[in-house]
Structures are given as structure tokens and as C-alpha cells.
Amino acid sequence: MTTTDIQFSPGEFLAPGVDWLNANLHGLFKGITQVIEAVLGAVEGVLLAPHPYLFIGIVVVGAFFFANRRVAVFAGLMLAFCLFSGLWVASMQTIALVSVAVLISVAIAFPLGVLAARVKRVDEAFLPILNIMQTVPPWVYLIPAVILFSLGRVPAIIATIVYGIPPMLRLTTLAFKQLPKEFLELGQASGASPKDILFKIELPTAAPTLLVGLNQCILMSLAMVVLAGLVGAGGLGAEVTRGLSRMEMGLGLRAGLAIVAVALLLDRLSRGALQRHSPSSHL
């Protein structure tokens, strides 16, 4: 057989390129790493600074004002579970990772989504890319991040950002495309500036769909952050990995349940915000 002899490894081919990147753009990657580490450290510091009881109190009161009583009680219970399972620090690390990643994802996806809603050609260019991005299993995202940033929290957060962009971008585009034309015409007719139209007409009308996007983005980011425990991202994912590799099922299960608690907490909080902005209460 001649065909079986053909062997070609694109990896071998690309590896020197990656090495070159690492050698020559070292400063850039190091800079990114430092910025992300600093931001993460700050967020973690804020989350861990108050005593856990105080923190739970703040979240409950905040949820009560921003959402409703049920969400507040629920959030309190979930956080209490994280505390009593002895994984408070890991839970806060996970929440810090998710919130930083979601913040950056949204900061990237939102403008791109608005652009795609305005310019048809951009939308058409994004569509196949988004399709591919959403089909590929999350594991694959970790590879380039790990190659460029080695192991640790930074590749985890970068993979999470990339993973969280598609749902947010899609729903932003959808939100802005769905806007009733009359509202825009009303704004133009009453001589509002483009900035006013964006902030006073488009954003409030698009808010429900945007919040759905945010909810999706948060949940997907959480799944990715947990998975990233495998590459040393720390947090609850690392505890699960530890439980798996040491066969300490109690630890693994506790960490797993804490992940569930964090997932439910973030889901209910973002949905609570969504319900406040739902059309029934708004119009």
C-alpha cells in the first residue's frame, strides 16, 4: 500500500510557528496574562473580603431589591450550601472566573452583535463562523489557549471568553433586528440623535432578548470554567478533578453539588433580572 505511507502532521508543521509566537510575542502574552491575573485577583479579593455570612447577606438583600423575594431566599440557600460544603473559597474563585469571563465576552459580543444587526454583510460573514464555533465541543477551545498561555487560570478564562461569545452575539443581533420599526421612525421623526435612539429606544426595547443572551452566556461560561479545572484553572472544577483523580468521591460529589448551587444561583439571579425587564412589567 502506498496510501498508508503518506503521513503528514499539521501539528508538527504548526508547532514551530507556535514556538515562534511564544518566543517573539512573549511580552504580549505576558502582558495579557498579567492584566487578566490582576483583574481576577481583584474580583476574587472583593468576593472573599467580607465574611461569608456578610457576603450572603449582601447578595440576599441585593437579590431582594433587584429581583424578588423568592430569588433572594433561593440565592441565600445556594450560597449557604457552598459555605457549608466547605468549598466557599473555591466557589468564590469559580464565580470570579465566570463573572470576569462573562464581562469580557459581553464587551466583545455586544458591539459585534449590534454591528451585525446593522450591516447585513457582517451578519452573513459571522453566521458560518458562529455555526462552527457552536458545534465544536468545548474541549477544543482549551487547546489553543493552553498552547499560547500554558496551564493555569489565564488559558481557562480565554477559552471561556471565546466559548461565551457566540450565544451573546447571536441574541444581540436577534434583539436589534427584532426591534419594531415604528419606534425607530418615531425617534427619527422627533429628531432624536443616534445616541439617544440607541440608549433610549433601542436598548430598553431589546433588553429582554439581551438578558436571555446574558443568561445563556453565563451558563455556558460556567460549564467551561468547570471543565477548565482540568488545565489548572482552580475553583470548583479543580476540586472535581481532584476528587476524580484521587478517587475521593465525597469531595468530588460535594464540589459537583456546589457547582450545581452556583449554576442555579447565577441562573436564577439573571432570570430574576430578566423577569423585571419582561415586557409585561415594562410596557
Binding site: P10, G11, L14, V146, S150, L151
Partner: peptide, 16 residues
């Protein structure tokens, strides 16, 4: 990924 074998991880990612 664990051994940071770049070439192999790129290949496997392509196959996936």
C-alpha cells in the same frame, strides 16, 4: 494538553 505536546494536541483537535 497535560504534557503540553503542541503538535499532537493540534492534530487531535483537527480530527475532532
Amino acid at each position: 494538553v497535560r504534557t503540553l505536546d503542541i503538535a499532537k494536541s493540534i492534530n487531535a483537535a483537527i480530527a475532532i
